[in-house]
Nucleic acid binder design. Sequence first.
DNA 1: CATGCAGCTTGACTTACATCAATGCGTCTA
DNA 2: TAGACGCATTGATGTAAGTCAAGCTGCATG
Lengths: 241, 241
Amino acid sequence: MSNAIPTASPSFLKCGQCSLGKLCLPVGLDPKDMNQLEDIVESQTPYKDQQKVYQASQAFERIYAVKSGMFKTVVNSSNGNEHIVGFHLPGELFGLDAIYPQKYVSSAYSLGTSSVCAINYQDLEALAGKLPSLQKQLMSLMSKEVHTSNAQSLEQTAEQKLATFILTLSSRYKQRGYSDTRINLMMPRRDIANHLNMAAETVSRLFKRFQTSGLLDIKRTELEIIDMEALKALAGCASAC
Amino acid sequence: MSNAIPTASPSFLKCGQCSLGKLCLPVGLDPKDMNQLEDIVESQTPYKDQQKVYQASQAFERIYAVKSGMFKTVVNSSNGNEHIVGFHLPGELFGLDAIYPQKYVSSAYSLGTSSVCAINYQDLEALAGKLPSLQKQLMSLMSKEVHTSNAQSLEQTAEQKLATFILTLSSRYKQRGYSDTRINLMMPRRDIANHLNMAAETVSRLFKRFQTSGLLDIKRTELEIIDMEALKALAGCASAC
DNA sequence: CATGCAGCTTGACTTACATCAATGCGTCTA
DNA sequence: TAGACGCATTGATGTAAGTCAAGCTGCATG
Protein backbone atom coordinates (compact mmCIF):
# COMPACT_ATOMS: atom_id res chain seq x y z
CA MET A 1 0.00 0.00 0.00
CA SER A 2 2.86 2.34 0.73
CA ASN A 3 3.34 3.14 -2.91
CA ALA A 4 -0.17 2.96 -4.21
CA ILE A 5 -0.78 5.41 -6.97
CA PRO A 6 -3.38 7.73 -5.47
CA THR A 7 -6.74 6.48 -6.63
CA ALA A 8 -8.32 9.87 -6.26
CA SER A 9 -6.42 13.11 -6.73
CA PRO A 10 -7.28 16.78 -6.69
CA SER A 11 -9.60 16.19 -9.56
CA PHE A 12 -10.13 19.50 -11.18
CA LEU A 13 -6.63 20.84 -11.04
CA LYS A 14 -5.56 22.82 -14.08
CA CYS A 15 -2.53 21.83 -16.18
CA GLY A 16 -0.39 24.60 -14.75
CA GLN A 17 -0.92 23.26 -11.23
CA CYS A 18 -0.91 19.56 -12.06
CA SER A 19 2.19 17.73 -10.84
CA LEU A 20 2.14 15.61 -14.00
CA GLY A 21 2.88 18.61 -16.15
CA LYS A 22 6.50 17.61 -16.56
CA LEU A 23 5.51 14.27 -18.12
CA CYS A 24 2.30 15.10 -19.88
CA LEU A 25 1.29 17.40 -22.72
CA PRO A 26 2.45 20.67 -21.12
CA VAL A 27 6.15 19.73 -21.31
CA GLY A 28 8.05 22.70 -22.70
CA LEU A 29 4.95 24.85 -22.81
CA ASP A 30 5.41 28.50 -21.97
CA PRO A 31 3.44 29.36 -18.79
CA LYS A 32 1.71 32.17 -20.65
CA ASP A 33 0.33 29.63 -23.16
CA MET A 34 -0.78 27.24 -20.45
CA ASN A 35 -4.26 28.69 -20.11
CA GLN A 36 -4.93 28.01 -23.78
CA LEU A 37 -4.27 24.34 -23.18
CA GLU A 38 -6.30 24.42 -19.98
CA ASP A 39 -9.22 25.81 -21.95
CA ILE A 40 -9.51 22.73 -24.13
CA VAL A 41 -8.82 20.18 -21.39
CA GLU A 42 -11.95 18.72 -19.93
CA SER A 43 -11.65 17.38 -16.41
CA GLN A 44 -13.98 14.47 -15.81
CA THR A 45 -15.34 12.84 -12.70
CA PRO A 46 -13.34 9.73 -11.73
CA TYR A 47 -14.08 6.37 -13.25
CA LYS A 48 -15.00 3.37 -11.11
CA ASP A 49 -13.11 0.09 -11.32
CA GLN A 50 -13.54 -1.53 -14.74
CA GLN A 51 -15.63 1.35 -16.02
CA LYS A 52 -15.41 1.93 -19.75
CA VAL A 53 -13.95 5.21 -21.05
CA TYR A 54 -14.60 4.50 -24.70
CA GLN A 55 -15.41 1.57 -26.87
CA ALA A 56 -13.73 0.20 -29.98
CA SER A 57 -15.38 1.32 -33.26
CA GLN A 58 -16.91 4.38 -31.60
CA ALA A 59 -16.20 7.62 -33.50
CA PHE A 60 -12.93 9.23 -32.45
CA GLU A 61 -13.32 12.51 -30.72
CA ARG A 62 -11.01 12.87 -27.77
CA ILE A 63 -7.67 11.64 -26.56
CA TYR A 64 -7.14 11.05 -22.86
CA ALA A 65 -4.39 11.84 -20.38
CA VAL A 66 -4.31 9.78 -17.20
CA LYS A 67 -4.56 11.96 -14.12
CA SER A 68 -4.61 9.30 -11.42
CA GLY A 69 -4.85 5.52 -11.11
CA MET A 70 -4.46 3.30 -14.13
CA PHE A 71 -6.28 2.49 -17.35
CA LYS A 72 -5.98 -0.40 -19.77
CA THR A 73 -6.67 -0.42 -23.49
CA VAL A 74 -8.04 -3.60 -25.04
CA VAL A 75 -8.49 -4.71 -28.65
CA ASN A 76 -10.95 -7.36 -29.77
CA SER A 77 -9.01 -9.71 -31.97
CA SER A 78 -10.83 -11.32 -34.85
CA ASN A 79 -11.14 -14.71 -33.16
CA GLY A 80 -13.28 -13.22 -30.45
CA ASN A 81 -10.80 -12.96 -27.61
CA GLU A 82 -9.50 -9.74 -26.21
CA HIS A 83 -5.95 -8.53 -26.01
CA ILE A 84 -4.69 -5.92 -23.59
CA VAL A 85 -2.55 -3.56 -25.62
CA GLY A 86 -1.28 -1.45 -22.76
CA PHE A 87 -1.59 -0.16 -19.22
CA HIS A 88 -1.53 3.60 -18.81
CA LEU A 89 -0.10 5.49 -15.85
CA PRO A 90 -0.59 9.11 -14.79
CA GLY A 91 0.79 11.55 -17.33
CA GLU A 92 0.46 9.08 -20.18
CA LEU A 93 -1.89 9.55 -23.12
CA PHE A 94 -4.19 6.96 -24.61
CA GLY A 95 -6.49 6.90 -27.59
CA LEU A 96 -3.75 8.05 -29.97
CA ASP A 97 -4.16 5.01 -32.20
CA ALA A 98 -7.60 6.32 -33.13
CA ILE A 99 -6.30 9.38 -34.95
CA TYR A 100 -5.54 7.60 -38.21
CA PRO A 101 -8.76 5.59 -38.58
CA GLN A 102 -10.84 8.36 -36.95
CA LYS A 103 -12.49 5.79 -34.72
CA TYR A 104 -11.33 4.02 -31.60
CA VAL A 105 -9.62 0.73 -32.37
CA SER A 106 -9.41 -0.33 -28.75
CA SER A 107 -11.66 -0.01 -25.72
CA ALA A 108 -10.36 1.66 -22.56
CA TYR A 109 -11.20 0.65 -19.00
CA SER A 110 -10.31 2.00 -15.60
CA LEU A 111 -8.39 -0.19 -13.16
CA GLY A 112 -9.52 0.76 -9.71
CA THR A 113 -10.86 4.27 -9.21
CA SER A 114 -8.98 6.43 -11.71
CA SER A 115 -9.35 9.75 -13.43
CA VAL A 116 -8.44 11.31 -16.76
CA CYS A 117 -8.34 14.58 -18.59
CA ALA A 118 -10.18 14.41 -21.89
CA ILE A 119 -9.01 16.55 -24.78
CA ASN A 120 -10.95 17.15 -27.95
CA TYR A 121 -8.53 16.19 -30.68
CA GLN A 122 -9.61 18.78 -33.20
CA ASP A 123 -9.05 21.50 -30.64
CA LEU A 124 -5.71 20.03 -29.70
CA GLU A 125 -4.63 19.89 -33.32
CA ALA A 126 -5.66 23.51 -33.83
CA LEU A 127 -3.83 24.61 -30.70
CA ALA A 128 -0.72 22.62 -31.61
CA GLY A 129 -0.66 24.56 -34.87
CA LYS A 130 -0.38 27.75 -32.86
CA LEU A 131 1.99 26.54 -30.14
CA PRO A 132 5.13 24.93 -31.57
CA SER A 133 6.21 23.48 -28.23
CA LEU A 134 2.85 21.75 -27.82
CA GLN A 135 3.12 20.32 -31.33
CA LYS A 136 6.61 19.15 -30.52
CA GLN A 137 5.54 17.43 -27.32
CA LEU A 138 2.58 15.78 -29.01
CA MET A 139 4.83 14.36 -31.71
CA SER A 140 7.31 13.31 -29.09
CA LEU A 141 4.68 11.41 -27.11
CA MET A 142 3.42 9.72 -30.26
CA SER A 143 6.96 8.71 -31.15
CA LYS A 144 7.45 7.29 -27.67
CA GLU A 145 4.30 5.27 -28.16
CA VAL A 146 5.62 3.83 -31.43
CA HIS A 147 8.84 2.89 -29.72
CA THR A 148 7.10 1.25 -26.76
CA SER A 149 4.87 -0.75 -29.06
CA ASN A 150 7.83 -1.89 -31.13
CA ALA A 151 9.75 -2.97 -28.04
CA GLN A 152 6.93 -5.32 -27.10
CA SER A 153 7.33 -7.52 -30.12
CA LEU A 154 10.85 -8.65 -29.21
CA GLU A 155 11.55 -12.33 -29.05
CA GLN A 156 11.73 -13.22 -25.39
CA THR A 157 11.06 -16.11 -23.04
CA ALA A 158 8.10 -15.82 -20.68
CA GLU A 159 10.59 -15.16 -17.88
CA GLN A 160 12.20 -12.26 -19.75
CA LYS A 161 8.85 -10.81 -20.72
CA LEU A 162 7.57 -10.80 -17.16
CA ALA A 163 10.82 -9.41 -15.74
CA THR A 164 10.79 -6.69 -18.39
CA PHE A 165 7.17 -5.89 -17.64
CA ILE A 166 7.91 -5.42 -13.94
CA LEU A 167 10.97 -3.30 -14.64
CA THR A 168 9.11 -1.13 -17.10
CA LEU A 169 6.37 -0.49 -14.56
CA SER A 170 8.99 0.19 -11.91
CA SER A 171 10.80 2.78 -13.98
CA ARG A 172 7.57 4.45 -15.01
CA TYR A 173 6.51 4.70 -11.36
CA LYS A 174 9.90 6.11 -10.46
CA GLN A 175 9.61 8.80 -13.15
CA ARG A 176 6.36 9.79 -11.50
CA GLY A 177 7.95 10.22 -8.11
CA TYR A 178 6.79 6.95 -6.57
CA SER A 179 8.91 4.18 -5.20
CA ASP A 180 10.42 2.00 -7.90
CA THR A 181 10.64 -1.00 -5.58
CA ARG A 182 7.21 -1.11 -3.95
CA ILE A 183 4.57 -1.32 -6.62
CA ASN A 184 0.87 -1.95 -6.67
CA LEU A 185 0.17 -3.85 -9.86
CA MET A 186 -3.53 -2.88 -9.86
CA MET A 187 -4.39 -5.66 -12.32
CA PRO A 188 -5.07 -9.39 -11.83
CA ARG A 189 -2.69 -12.13 -13.04
CA ARG A 190 -5.02 -12.83 -15.91
CA ASP A 191 -4.55 -9.31 -17.27
CA ILE A 192 -0.77 -9.47 -16.97
CA ALA A 193 -0.80 -12.83 -18.72
CA ASN A 194 -3.08 -11.59 -21.46
CA HIS A 195 -0.96 -8.50 -22.06
CA LEU A 196 2.24 -10.55 -22.27
CA ASN A 197 0.67 -13.31 -24.36
CA MET A 198 1.04 -16.09 -21.83
CA ALA A 199 -1.13 -18.25 -19.61
CA ALA A 200 -2.13 -16.96 -16.17
CA GLU A 201 -0.66 -20.15 -14.72
CA THR A 202 2.70 -19.26 -16.22
CA VAL A 203 2.61 -15.82 -14.59
CA SER A 204 1.81 -17.46 -11.30
CA ARG A 205 4.65 -19.96 -11.60
CA LEU A 206 7.11 -17.27 -12.62
CA PHE A 207 6.19 -15.01 -9.71
CA LYS A 208 6.74 -18.01 -7.46
CA ARG A 209 10.12 -18.67 -9.02
CA PHE A 210 11.14 -15.00 -8.77
CA GLN A 211 10.08 -14.99 -5.13
CA THR A 212 11.89 -18.23 -4.32
CA SER A 213 15.10 -16.94 -5.86
CA GLY A 214 14.84 -13.78 -3.79
CA LEU A 215 14.24 -11.37 -6.65
CA LEU A 216 10.98 -10.02 -5.33
CA ASP A 217 8.17 -10.41 -2.89
CA ILE A 218 4.59 -10.51 -4.05
CA LYS A 219 1.26 -10.84 -2.34
CA ARG A 220 -1.73 -10.49 -4.61
CA THR A 221 -1.14 -7.20 -6.39
CA GLU A 222 1.40 -5.84 -3.89
CA LEU A 223 4.86 -6.26 -5.32
CA GLU A 224 8.23 -5.44 -3.79
CA ILE A 225 11.37 -5.69 -5.87
CA ILE A 226 14.16 -7.08 -3.69
CA ASP A 227 17.00 -7.60 -6.11
CA MET A 228 16.67 -5.03 -8.89
CA GLU A 229 20.01 -5.86 -10.47
CA ALA A 230 19.29 -9.55 -10.73
CA LEU A 231 15.90 -8.76 -12.22
CA LYS A 232 17.52 -6.52 -14.82
CA ALA A 233 20.03 -9.21 -15.64
CA LEU A 234 17.18 -11.65 -16.10
CA ALA A 235 15.28 -9.28 -18.36
CA GLY A 236 18.35 -8.98 -20.54
CA CYS A 237 18.31 -5.33 -19.56
CA ALA A 238 15.86 -4.76 -22.40
CA SER A 239 14.02 -2.04 -20.52
CA ALA A 240 15.86 -0.16 -17.86
CA CYS A 241 19.62 -0.52 -18.21
CA MET B 1 8.57 -10.60 -61.59
CA SER B 2 5.29 -9.32 -62.96
CA ASN B 3 4.51 -7.39 -59.83
CA ALA B 4 7.94 -6.42 -58.69
CA ILE B 5 7.96 -3.05 -57.01
CA PRO B 6 10.11 -0.97 -59.35
CA THR B 7 13.62 -1.06 -57.97
CA ALA B 8 14.50 2.19 -59.59
CA SER B 9 12.00 4.97 -60.22
CA PRO B 10 12.15 8.48 -61.59
CA SER B 11 14.48 9.41 -58.80
CA PHE B 12 14.29 13.12 -58.45
CA LEU B 13 10.60 13.63 -58.93
CA LYS B 14 9.10 16.34 -56.75
CA CYS B 15 6.26 15.59 -54.34
CA GLY B 16 3.67 17.23 -56.57
CA GLN B 17 4.54 14.84 -59.41
CA CYS B 18 5.21 11.74 -57.31
CA SER B 19 2.57 9.04 -57.67
CA LEU B 20 2.92 8.24 -53.97
CA GLY B 21 1.56 11.63 -53.00
CA LYS B 22 -1.81 10.16 -52.12
CA LEU B 23 -0.27 7.86 -49.50
CA CYS B 24 2.68 9.86 -48.29
CA LEU B 25 3.13 13.17 -46.50
CA PRO B 26 1.43 15.37 -49.13
CA VAL B 27 -2.03 13.88 -48.47
CA GLY B 28 -4.48 16.70 -48.15
CA LEU B 29 -1.86 19.31 -48.93
CA ASP B 30 -2.98 22.27 -50.99
CA PRO B 31 -1.11 22.30 -54.35
CA LYS B 32 0.02 25.86 -53.68
CA ASP B 33 1.76 24.69 -50.48
CA MET B 34 3.39 21.75 -52.20
CA ASN B 35 6.53 23.61 -53.17
CA GLN B 36 7.20 24.42 -49.52
CA LEU B 37 7.27 20.73 -48.76
CA GLU B 38 9.34 20.02 -51.85
CA ASP B 39 11.88 22.56 -50.62
CA ILE B 40 12.67 20.57 -47.51
CA VAL B 41 12.57 17.14 -49.12
CA GLU B 42 15.96 15.87 -50.09
CA SER B 43 16.04 13.32 -52.88
CA GLN B 44 18.89 10.90 -52.50
CA THR B 45 20.63 8.55 -54.89
CA PRO B 46 19.29 5.00 -54.62
CA TYR B 47 20.60 2.59 -52.01
CA LYS B 48 22.15 -0.72 -52.99
CA ASP B 49 20.93 -4.01 -51.56
CA GLN B 50 21.56 -4.20 -47.81
CA GLN B 51 23.02 -0.71 -47.73
CA LYS B 52 22.56 1.10 -44.43
CA VAL B 53 20.46 4.29 -44.32
CA TYR B 54 21.13 5.09 -40.69
CA GLN B 55 22.44 3.33 -37.66
CA ALA B 56 20.95 2.87 -34.19
CA SER B 57 22.25 5.37 -31.60
CA GLN B 58 23.20 7.87 -34.29
CA ALA B 59 21.83 11.36 -33.64
CA PHE B 60 18.34 11.84 -35.05
CA GLU B 61 18.15 14.29 -37.86
CA ARG B 62 15.90 13.13 -40.64
CA ILE B 63 12.89 10.95 -41.21
CA TYR B 64 12.60 8.99 -44.43
CA ALA B 65 9.84 8.32 -46.91
CA VAL B 66 10.26 5.28 -49.16
CA LYS B 67 10.17 6.21 -52.83
CA SER B 68 10.82 2.81 -54.40
CA GLY B 69 11.79 -0.68 -53.35
CA MET B 70 11.73 -1.71 -49.72
CA PHE B 71 13.59 -0.97 -46.49
CA LYS B 72 13.78 -2.80 -43.21
CA THR B 73 14.35 -1.37 -39.74
CA VAL B 74 16.26 -3.46 -37.23
CA VAL B 75 16.80 -3.10 -33.49
CA ASN B 76 19.67 -4.64 -31.60
CA SER B 77 18.16 -6.38 -28.62
CA SER B 78 20.14 -6.46 -25.41
CA ASN B 79 21.19 -10.08 -25.79
CA GLY B 80 23.07 -9.28 -28.96
CA ASN B 81 20.68 -10.55 -31.59
CA GLU B 82 18.84 -8.36 -34.01
CA HIS B 83 15.12 -8.02 -34.50
CA ILE B 84 13.45 -6.74 -37.64
CA VAL B 85 10.85 -4.26 -36.48
CA GLY B 86 9.28 -3.59 -39.84
CA PHE B 87 9.43 -3.60 -43.62
CA HIS B 88 8.66 -0.33 -45.34
CA LEU B 89 7.00 0.06 -48.72
CA PRO B 90 6.80 3.08 -51.03
CA GLY B 91 4.92 5.98 -49.46
CA GLU B 92 5.62 4.78 -45.92
CA LEU B 93 7.75 6.72 -43.46
CA PHE B 94 10.45 5.31 -41.22
CA GLY B 95 12.63 6.76 -38.51
CA LEU B 96 9.62 8.12 -36.60
CA ASP B 97 10.54 6.22 -33.45
CA ALA B 98 13.66 8.40 -33.18
CA ILE B 99 11.72 11.61 -32.50
CA TYR B 100 11.21 11.00 -28.80
CA PRO B 101 14.73 9.88 -27.88
CA GLN B 102 16.29 12.23 -30.46
CA LYS B 103 18.50 9.42 -31.69
CA TYR B 104 17.79 6.47 -33.93
CA VAL B 105 16.73 3.40 -31.98
CA SER B 106 16.86 1.12 -34.98
CA SER B 107 19.08 0.76 -38.01
CA ALA B 108 17.59 0.91 -41.49
CA TYR B 109 18.71 -1.12 -44.51
CA SER B 110 17.68 -1.27 -48.12
CA LEU B 111 16.29 -4.51 -49.56
CA GLY B 112 17.32 -4.66 -53.17
CA THR B 113 17.98 -1.38 -54.92
CA SER B 114 15.66 1.13 -53.29
CA SER B 115 15.32 4.85 -52.86
CA VAL B 116 14.04 7.30 -50.28
CA CYS B 117 13.25 10.93 -49.73
CA ALA B 118 15.00 12.30 -46.64
CA ILE B 119 13.34 15.07 -44.68
CA ASN B 120 15.02 17.11 -41.98
CA TYR B 121 12.73 16.74 -39.01
CA GLN B 122 13.22 20.23 -37.62
CA ASP B 123 12.25 21.70 -40.96
CA LEU B 124 9.27 19.38 -41.18
CA GLU B 125 8.11 20.35 -37.71
CA ALA B 126 8.44 24.02 -38.57
CA LEU B 127 6.54 23.59 -41.82
CA ALA B 128 3.83 21.50 -40.13
CA GLY B 129 3.30 24.44 -37.77
CA LYS B 130 2.49 26.58 -40.78
CA LEU B 131 0.48 24.06 -42.80
CA PRO B 132 -2.35 22.49 -40.80
CA SER B 133 -3.01 19.78 -43.35
CA LEU B 134 0.63 18.69 -43.23
CA GLN B 135 0.51 18.57 -39.45
CA LYS B 136 -2.67 16.55 -39.66
CA GLN B 137 -1.18 14.04 -42.07
CA LEU B 138 1.99 13.70 -40.02
CA MET B 139 -0.04 12.92 -36.90
CA SER B 140 -2.19 10.57 -38.89
CA LEU B 141 0.83 8.62 -40.15
CA MET B 142 2.28 8.43 -36.65
CA SER B 143 -1.03 7.15 -35.32
CA LYS B 144 -1.10 4.53 -38.05
CA GLU B 145 2.36 3.46 -36.98
CA VAL B 146 1.21 3.06 -33.38
CA HIS B 147 -1.70 0.97 -34.52
CA THR B 148 0.42 -1.24 -36.76
CA SER B 149 2.91 -1.83 -33.99
CA ASN B 150 0.16 -2.70 -31.54
CA ALA B 151 -1.41 -5.15 -33.94
CA GLN B 152 1.83 -7.11 -34.09
CA SER B 153 1.73 -8.14 -30.48
CA LEU B 154 -1.45 -10.17 -30.81
CA GLU B 155 -1.40 -13.75 -29.60
CA GLN B 156 -1.28 -15.90 -32.66
CA THR B 157 0.03 -19.25 -33.85
CA ALA B 158 2.94 -19.29 -36.28
CA GLU B 159 0.46 -20.16 -39.02
CA GLN B 160 -1.74 -17.15 -38.25
CA LYS B 161 1.22 -14.82 -38.01
CA LEU B 162 2.58 -15.84 -41.40
CA ALA B 163 -0.83 -15.70 -43.06
CA THR B 164 -1.42 -12.26 -41.57
CA PHE B 165 1.99 -11.10 -42.71
CA ILE B 166 1.30 -12.14 -46.30
CA LEU B 167 -2.14 -10.54 -46.27
CA THR B 168 -0.82 -7.31 -44.83
CA LEU B 169 1.82 -7.12 -47.54
CA SER B 170 -0.80 -7.94 -50.14
CA SER B 171 -3.13 -5.18 -49.05
CA ARG B 172 -0.31 -2.65 -48.82
CA TYR B 173 0.78 -3.53 -52.36
CA LYS B 174 -2.78 -3.21 -53.54
CA GLN B 175 -3.10 0.25 -52.01
CA ARG B 176 -0.06 1.21 -54.05
CA GLY B 177 -1.61 0.08 -57.28
CA TYR B 178 0.22 -3.23 -57.63
CA SER B 179 -1.30 -6.67 -57.83
CA ASP B 180 -2.42 -7.99 -54.47
CA THR B 181 -1.99 -11.59 -55.57
CA ARG B 182 1.44 -11.62 -57.19
CA ILE B 183 3.99 -10.35 -54.74
CA ASN B 184 7.74 -10.20 -54.63
CA LEU B 185 8.71 -10.67 -51.01
CA MET B 186 12.13 -9.07 -51.49
CA MET B 187 13.45 -10.57 -48.25
CA PRO B 188 14.84 -14.03 -47.43
CA ARG B 189 13.01 -16.54 -45.18
CA ARG B 190 15.38 -15.71 -42.38
CA ASP B 191 14.16 -12.10 -42.34
CA ILE B 192 10.49 -13.07 -42.39
CA ALA B 193 11.14 -15.52 -39.57
CA ASN B 194 13.05 -12.98 -37.55
CA HIS B 195 10.34 -10.35 -38.00
CA LEU B 196 7.61 -12.76 -36.92
CA ASN B 197 9.63 -14.26 -34.07
CA MET B 198 9.88 -17.75 -35.44
CA ALA B 199 12.51 -20.08 -36.88
CA ALA B 200 13.33 -19.92 -40.59
CA GLU B 201 12.57 -23.64 -40.74
CA THR B 202 9.06 -22.97 -39.50
CA VAL B 203 8.50 -20.38 -42.23
CA SER B 204 9.69 -22.90 -44.78
CA ARG B 205 7.41 -25.64 -43.45
CA LEU B 206 4.44 -23.30 -43.35
CA PHE B 207 4.97 -22.08 -46.92
CA LYS B 208 5.09 -25.72 -47.92
CA ARG B 209 1.86 -26.44 -46.08
CA PHE B 210 0.14 -23.37 -47.58
CA GLN B 211 1.29 -24.45 -51.02
CA THR B 212 0.18 -28.07 -50.55
CA SER B 213 -3.26 -26.95 -49.44
CA GLY B 214 -3.56 -24.74 -52.50
CA LEU B 215 -3.53 -21.40 -50.72
CA LEU B 216 -0.57 -20.01 -52.55
CA ASP B 217 2.33 -20.69 -54.83
CA ILE B 218 5.82 -19.68 -53.85
CA LYS B 219 9.20 -19.95 -55.48
CA ARG B 220 11.99 -18.25 -53.60
CA THR B 221 10.72 -14.70 -53.11
CA GLU B 222 8.06 -14.85 -55.81
CA LEU B 223 4.70 -15.37 -54.18
CA GLU B 224 1.29 -15.84 -55.74
CA ILE B 225 -1.81 -15.93 -53.60
CA ILE B 226 -4.21 -18.52 -55.01
CA ASP B 227 -6.96 -18.66 -52.44
CA MET B 228 -7.22 -15.27 -50.77
CA GLU B 229 -10.38 -16.11 -48.86
CA ALA B 230 -8.95 -19.25 -47.32
CA LEU B 231 -5.83 -17.35 -46.36
CA LYS B 232 -7.94 -14.69 -44.67
CA ALA B 233 -9.88 -17.34 -42.83
CA LEU B 234 -6.62 -18.85 -41.68
CA ALA B 235 -5.30 -15.51 -40.48
CA GLY B 236 -8.44 -15.06 -38.44
CA CYS B 237 -9.07 -12.06 -40.66
CA ALA B 238 -6.85 -10.06 -38.32
CA SER B 239 -5.55 -7.88 -41.10
CA ALA B 240 -7.60 -7.46 -44.18
CA CYS B 241 -11.22 -8.42 -43.60
C1' DC C 1 -20.57 -16.69 10.80
C1' DA C 2 -21.40 -19.55 6.89
C1' DT C 3 -21.55 -19.61 1.96
C1' DG C 4 -20.10 -18.42 -2.34
C1' DC C 5 -17.25 -16.97 -5.74
C1' DA C 6 -13.39 -15.04 -8.10
C1' DG C 7 -8.75 -15.18 -8.38
C1' DC C 8 -4.58 -17.63 -7.48
C1' DT C 9 -1.68 -21.71 -7.01
C1' DT C 10 0.02 -26.22 -8.01
C1' DG C 11 0.57 -30.56 -10.46
C1' DA C 12 0.20 -33.79 -14.54
C1' DC C 13 0.08 -33.98 -19.23
C1' DT C 14 0.31 -32.24 -24.13
C1' DT C 15 1.92 -29.70 -27.94
C1' DA C 16 3.63 -26.26 -31.04
C1' DC C 17 7.61 -24.74 -32.24
C1' DA C 18 12.73 -24.37 -31.71
C1' DT C 19 16.99 -26.52 -32.37
C1' DC C 20 20.21 -29.47 -34.51
C1' DA C 21 21.80 -31.73 -38.46
C1' DA C 22 21.90 -33.32 -43.10
C1' DT C 23 20.82 -32.58 -47.80
C1' DG C 24 19.27 -30.02 -51.95
C1' DC C 25 19.14 -26.20 -55.11
C1' DG C 26 20.62 -21.77 -57.64
C1' DT C 27 23.65 -18.46 -58.68
C1' DC C 28 28.08 -16.43 -58.93
C1' DT C 29 32.91 -16.71 -59.90
C1' DA C 30 37.05 -18.23 -61.91
C1' DT D 1 31.59 -26.21 -66.14
C1' DA D 2 33.25 -27.15 -61.57
C1' DG D 3 33.37 -25.59 -57.24
C1' DA D 4 31.62 -23.05 -53.54
C1' DC D 5 28.67 -20.40 -50.99
C1' DG D 6 24.25 -18.79 -49.35
C1' DC D 7 19.68 -19.94 -48.88
C1' DA D 8 15.92 -23.23 -48.57
C1' DT D 9 14.09 -27.70 -47.42
C1' DT D 10 13.32 -31.78 -44.74
C1' DG D 11 13.63 -34.93 -40.84
C1' DA D 12 14.61 -36.21 -35.92
C1' DT D 13 14.51 -34.71 -31.35
C1' DG D 14 14.02 -31.57 -27.27
C1' DT D 15 11.67 -28.24 -24.47
C1' DA D 16 9.17 -24.10 -22.90
C1' DA D 17 4.97 -23.00 -22.10
C1' DG D 18 0.00 -24.05 -22.87
C1' DT D 19 -4.03 -26.69 -21.32
C1' DC D 20 -6.73 -29.22 -18.12
C1' DA D 21 -8.02 -30.19 -13.66
C1' DA D 22 -8.08 -29.96 -8.78
C1' DG D 23 -7.52 -27.55 -4.61
C1' DC D 24 -6.51 -23.18 -2.04
C1' DT D 25 -7.25 -18.27 -0.26
C1' DG D 26 -9.41 -14.46 0.93
C1' DC D 27 -12.81 -10.97 0.13
C1' DA D 28 -17.85 -10.11 -0.23
C1' DT D 29 -22.70 -10.90 0.83
C1' DG D 30 -26.79 -12.38 3.16
